[in-house]
């Protein structure tokens, strides 16, 4: 969670929510949180477990790529 916060501090394009999910069963269901820590990146990316800085960066860069609709336009 701290790494996600640090990404948010580093870039004004990134926002980071830390969610202690026990009190939010609706969010747990919506994002299919069965193991923690689980990180959801943008609209479609996700991974479970702690990952390092370069791995999170890869996820972030992928999430920031234009979607298929934008690419086709």
């Amino acid at each position: 969670m701290r790494l996600a916060y640090r990404f948010a501090i580093a870039s004004d394009k990134i926002t980071a929510d830390g969610v202690e999910v026990t009190g939010f069963p609706d969010l747990a269901r919506r994002y299919r949180v069965s193991s923690v820590p689980k990180t959801v990146v943008g609209e479609g990316g996700e991974f479970v477990g702690a990952q390092g800085e370069s791995a999170l960066l890869d996820h972030v860069l992928k999430a920031a790529l234009p979607g298929p609709a934008a690419t086709d336009a």
Binding site: A4, K13, I14, A16, D17, E20, T39, V40, L57, A64
Partner: peptide
């Protein structure tokens, strides 16, 4: 990492789910 983030073209929202 900072250099790569400087070139970020679109907003990205991160959500990290945890339990106590």
């Amino acid at each position: 990492t900072l250099e790569a983030l400087r070139n970020l073209q679109a907003p990205v929202h991160l959500q990290v789910f945890s339990t106590p």
